[in-house]
Structures are given as C-alpha cells and as structure tokens.
C-alpha cells in the first residue's frame, strides 16, 4: 500500500477510516457472537475448546477495533462512543458487518462453511493490512493475522473431513456452502469507503483480496471433493448489503439477544 497519492482531503480520509475500522470491528464482533452461541453444543469436547478459542480471538479483535473506531469518530464529531456503546447501543441498520458472518449455525457444516469463507477472506485482509499507513490498524493486523491463520486452518480441516467423510457429511457440507456462498460477494466489493482508505494506504482494496481467496477456497474444495457453488449472489434491496446496514433478518435476533441486558440498565457499568 502506498501513501495518500491521489490527495483526497484529510477530512475525507478520516471519515472513511472511521467507517472502515467500524466495518472490521463489526465483522469480528458478529462472527464471534455467532460462534459463542455454540458453547457446550459442540460435536465433541475438543470442538467446544476450539470454537470458544476462535470466538475469543475474534472478540479480542472486535474490542480493539471498536474502541479505535469510537476514538476516530470522536475526532470527527467530538462525541466518544466506547466499544460497549458501539456493540450494545446501535440498531440493525447501523451495523456494517458483511452479512456472511450473521448467518445462523444451522448445523455444524454451516458453521464450518461460514468460518471457512470468512476466515479465508480475513487472512487475505489482515495480511494486506499489516502494511497499513495507520499504525493502529497495522498493529491489529499483525496480531490478527496469526489468529485468523489458525481459524482458517481449523475450518479448512473440517471442510475436508466433512466433504470427504460420509455421504451424509458430504451432502451437509455441500448444502452449507450453497447457503453461505451468495453472501461472499460483498466481502470483495469496493465502494467509496474502501476506495478512499485504499488510496490513502490505510485500508485494502477488497477486490485485490479475491484472487488469493479464490485460490485457497478452490484448493480446499478440491481436497474435500466438493464443488464451487454456482448459486447467484444475493443483494439487498437496491443493491445494498451489510456494509450499508442492510442485513438479513437473522441480525435483528442476534442483536436483540446480545443487547438486551445492557440496554435494560442504561448507564450502568459492569
């Protein structure tokens, strides 16, 4: 990533950086919340440990990113929102995570498929962001890259076991991939925010992450004896998606559960 070559005004870069960091934080938070639902529900004890481990890594990333997003926003608006304000006091339309991470744990194969597609993307992303011109972003990326490499490996191993396991597991894995696939497109779709941060050397161009992700996913699918789904991408109304706060119906329930106690005690500390 190079410096601010096209010379976008600093205010524009700052606004885009705040929005970008919030997206990263939301992706990690919602992915973590989904995994954390599985506590004491894993197919074996080792998976209870592993899934909790991954949920904890993602939550750690989310906390640093949301904290930073709040401070960046404060510089623009003069009003500070903490990590908890951002996690617990925003509604569906204000969350800008990719829809992929909010998809439910329909069965273990769906969890594996979601994690495979997301962590494959996250590894490409954080590898690129290690070179970010923003020190905090680069710092988060440096730590996250090791964590998501493990997440990706964990998901890939399971995808292969399930794809190349029994007839039932292979069918379930294929169905799960089909269900998640239509939500992968938006991970790689550039918009005004990503264009500005990429030009400023702060963020990564999402389209540039795609070839690495494609190659990785194709490799896993081949080893698992699975095919790349041909399901069409699902966009929201008017082509909007998670980045614009237009989500699946699943997110509302996830947030209702996550936010209810915090909201029942306004101003309380925990």
């Amino acid at each position: 990533m190079s410096g601010n070559e096209n010379g976008a005004p600093q205010a524009e870069v700052d606004t885009a950086t705040a929005a970008y960091v919030l997206r990263l934080g939301d992706d990690a938070l919602i992915a973590s919340q989904r995994l954390a639902e599985l506590a004491a529900r894993g197919p074996q004890l080792e998976e209870d440990v592993a899934l909790a481990n991954i949920a904890l890594d993602l939550l750690g990333q989310a906390r640093v990113l949301l904290d930073y997003a709040g401070r960046l926003e404060e510089q623009l608006t003069g009003v500070l929102r903490t990590e908890d304000d951002l996690a617990f006091l925003r509604d569906e339309r204000q969350f800008c995570n990719a829809r992929l991470v909010e998809l439910p744990n329909t069965d273990f194969a769906h969890t594996v498929a979601r994690q495979l597609l997301f962590s494959g993307y996250a590894l490409e992303l954080y590898t690129a962001l290690q070179g970010s011109a923003d020190e905090t972003v680069a710092g988060v990326a440096g730590k996250a890259v090791k964590e998501v490499a493990y997440h990706r490996d964990h998901a890939a191993r399971w995808a292969v076991r399930l794809g190349d396991g029994t007839e039932e597991s292979s069918e379930r894995m294929a169905a799960a991939l089909e269900a998640c696939w239509p939500y992968t497109g938006e991970l790689f779709t550039p918009d005004e925010v990503t264009r500005t941060v990429a030009a400023a050397g702060v963020g990564a161009d999402p389209a540039g992450l795609r070839p690495g992700w494609d190659a990785f996913i194709d490799g896993v699918l081949a080893e698992a004896g699975l095919h790349r789904p041909e399901t069409a991408q699902i966009t929201g109304p008017a082509g909007l998606g998670g980045r614009q706060g237009v989500h699946t119906e699943h997110l509302g329930y996830l947030l209702a559960e996550m936010q209810h106690i915090h909201r029942s005690h306004p101003g309380a500390t925990w």
Binding site: L29, Q33, A36, E37, A39, L59, A62, R63, L66, E83, D84, A87, F88, E257, M258, H260, I261, H262, H265, A268, T269, W270
Partner: peptide
Amino acid sequence: ITRAPSLK
C-alpha cells in the same frame, strides 16, 4: 455468554 452486558 450471548447476553453478557459488556464485551469485557
């Protein structure tokens, strides 16, 4: 876990 009132 899913309802914990703060991220910490």
